[in-house]
Simulated scan of single mutants.
Amino acid sequence: MPSRSLIKLRYILLLPSDDPNIVELPPRNEGLGKWESCLVGYFLDKKLPFNYIRNSTFNQWKNMGLKEVQANGDGFMFFIFDDMDACGRVLEEGPWYMGNQLLLLKKWKRMMRLTKEHVSQIPVWIKLFNVPMEYWDFERQSRISSKIGLPLFMDHLTSTGSTVSFARVCVEVNVDSPLPQNFFVKCEDEVVEIRVEYQGTPAKCEHCRVFGHDTKNCISNQVAQLVKMQKVTEEDKKDGWKTIKSKGKKKIGNQMKERAVKGVIPFK
């Protein structure tokens, strides 16, 4: 059972409204405390355990001013920071991944509707292997990664040349992007194969053309397939064929006629 707080409520006469189902609220002009420095986030694919999310975010954002993490029952997380500048730094340094899942973040605002949007474009970290050393600068990395999507930025190790195993770049991809596993770069007569690895790419639905669920488990796609099957069945009924149901015993002559109707034997 819930414990009772010491704060007492009181009855307030509601403001008049044209709709009896609407409660008119006056604007709140005073400060909103911790919610003014809050980020709201959710995952596209799977829900992760709350304790895992809390520990992971504190490991990454504690030095950036993270103070508190909360969650509701619909998969939304609330990250409370010291101030609004800390929220801005976290948003600027994204995208962020938890358990290889992309965490979508948005600044909290008044009267915010907590709905998971239809996402058709997402930022994705990619690893580019076998990139020639002379092409590890900003301009050439932009050109090469444009094969995958819209280049956003490199990670720190790639930009400083501190690693040579692979180039790590963040690109924005569309739900219709092919996401190749490899492609080739050519300079004059020399050709080099570039291998690509994608980090935390969420499932995508080709029917809805959004990220967040796959086509196989899409309810809208299943309904569309059922409607399509129904139309095919109705068209088959219009082509002149019909099924004759048997009722009891029949004479041989009647059976021959029925088989002729179905096109099995010529009917004379």
Results as ranks from 00 to 15, higher is better:
L66F: 08
I194C: 05
E188Y: 10
S146D: 09
K147W: 12
L14M: 12
L9R: 00
E134P: 00
L66Q: 00
D18G: 12
K8N: 09
S220I: 03
V210W: 00
K147V: 14
Q60K: 15
K250Q: 15
R113L: 15
G94E: 00
R140D: 13
E92A: 13
E24N: 03
L128A: 05
F78I: 05
M98K: 09
L39W: 11
L66H: 00
W125I: 12
I244K: 11
E235L: 12
W35Y: 09
I80Q: 13
N100E: 11
F211N: 02
D82R: 02
A86S: 03
G212D: 03
F267Y: 00
R4P: 08
H118E: 15
N221F: 15
D85F: 09
K231C: 07
S177K: 03
T243V: 13
V131E: 06
G248Q: 00
V124Q: 05
L39N: 05
L128I: 04
G149V: 04
D82K: 07
E234Q: 15
R209S: 06
V223R: 09
M133P: 01
S56D: 11
F43G: 05
K216W: 04
K257W: 05
Q255Y: 08
P49V: 01
V232Q: 04
G263L: 06
V223Q: 13
Q141I: 13
F50W: 04
T201V: 12
H156M: 03
K186M: 10
V191D: 01
Q101E: 14
V40K: 04
L103A: 01
E92N: 03
V196C: 12
L150D: 02
M112D: 08
G88R: 08
S220G: 05
S142V: 05
S165E: 05
K249F: 08
V175M: 00
N217H: 14
D189A: 03
G248L: 06
A86T: 05
